[in-house]
Simulated scan of single mutants.
Amino acid sequence: MAGQRTPRGTLSREKIVATAVEVLGKDGLDGVTMRSVANVLDVNAMSLYRHFRAKEDLLLALVDELMAGLPLPPPGTPPVEAVREIVRAHFALLLQYPGLHLVDTGTIPAPGELRVSERLYAALLESGMDIPGAVGLLAVIQRFVVGCAFRYPARHDWDHNLVYWNEVRASLAKLPADDYPTLRKLGAGLDDAMRTQEEIFEEGLDALLAPLTTRTRRG
């Protein structure tokens, strides 16, 4: 991204955060530094410290900005579908901005995160879950989403890669039958239509929400 001189007196917290979001989308979390953001703005890096005490503060503001823009389902959306829509949107956000999941936002979330948590917990409680159950399920879902996003960059190249899966089958076929009968059986049963990372995400989400779906239907 080519730097464009920011006119004197117009540098603001909002402009800095917006530029940091651009850098994150292009270069990932490691690319977001006070210097890199300042370079894009074509200002001295020290000028950013008038608005943020440290890089960590900028990263927190960046997360808050992105979470504040996460689309939420409209009122009246069935609880399970509301949770599903929000989780999908969060996953898409993590894929769009590599490394976002690595930012530690601490124990007191900013408003952007709070609005998402409020909507998720409201949907879980509306479905009939008790508070401990809702807290536990959401914790598991959050870890699942982060794990899928973390794995995605390295794994999505495997999707429908026949060369890769043929190598996997061949490798499993060479395992000693007496020691690894199940893995050999698994290799022999692999077909060419392996699931994409998005399909794996959807299947995992279905599994996590299955008890909630059953509960809602019974209700």
Rank of each mutant, 00 (worst) to 15 (best):
D191T: 15
G187W: 04
T19D: 07
M34F: 03
H51C: 03
R169E: 06
G31N: 08
D192A: 15
S171Y: 05
F201Q: 02
A173T: 00
R13Q: 10
L186C: 01
G28A: 03
G69D: 14
T10N: 02
P75R: 02
A92W: 05
S47I: 01
A123N: 02
V21D: 05
A170W: 01
R169A: 07
I200A: 09
D42Y: 12
L59R: 06
V83D: 01
L137Y: 01
R184K: 06
V63Q: 12
Y164S: 03
A139R: 14
T216M: 13
G204W: 10
L212P: 01
L114S: 07
H101K: 11
E56Y: 02
K174T: 01
D191G: 13
N39M: 13
L11M: 09
L208A: 10
Q142I: 14
V23L: 12
E85Y: 09
L137S: 05
V17T: 12
E65M: 04
A188D: 14
P73N: 08
Y152G: 00
F91Q: 04
A110H: 12
E113I: 11
P74K: 07
G9E: 12
P7M: 10
L102C: 06
V87H: 01
V23G: 04
I131W: 09
V146H: 00
D57H: 13
A38C: 07
A20M: 02
Q4C: 07
S117H: 03
I86T: 14
H160F: 07
D57M: 08
A154Q: 03
L48W: 02
C148I: 13
A82H: 04
G187I: 00
A2Q: 12
T107G: 10
E81W: 08
E199Q: 15
L172Q: 06
G219Q: 07
D206T: 14
L208S: 04
H156N: 07
N39T: 10
V135C: 14
E202Q: 13
P176N: 02
A177M: 01
V32K: 01
L209T: 04
G128T: 03
V80G: 03
Y121P: 00
S47H: 11
P132S: 04
I200Q: 08
D157N: 04
L94E: 06
H101N: 11
R215F: 02
P73H: 11
D64E: 11
R13W: 04
A45N: 12
Q96A: 15
T10C: 10
D157P: 00
T182F: 06
E22G: 02
A139N: 11
P176Y: 00
R217T: 15
L59F: 01
G133W: 03
L138K: 05
M46F: 10
V140A: 11
G3E: 06
P98A: 05
T182G: 08
A82K: 05
L190Q: 08
H156G: 01
L93K: 03
G219P: 00
A68S: 15
E22M: 09
R151F: 03
R5I: 11
V43F: 06
H156R: 13
H51I: 03
L102K: 13
W158G: 00
E126D: 14
R215L: 15
P211W: 05
D27T: 06
V163Q: 01
A170D: 10
N166T: 14
A110G: 12
G3L: 13
A193E: 09
L209I: 08
D191F: 01
V32M: 07
F201S: 05
L66M: 08
D157F: 07
E198P: 00
R50W: 12
A2E: 13
V37M: 10
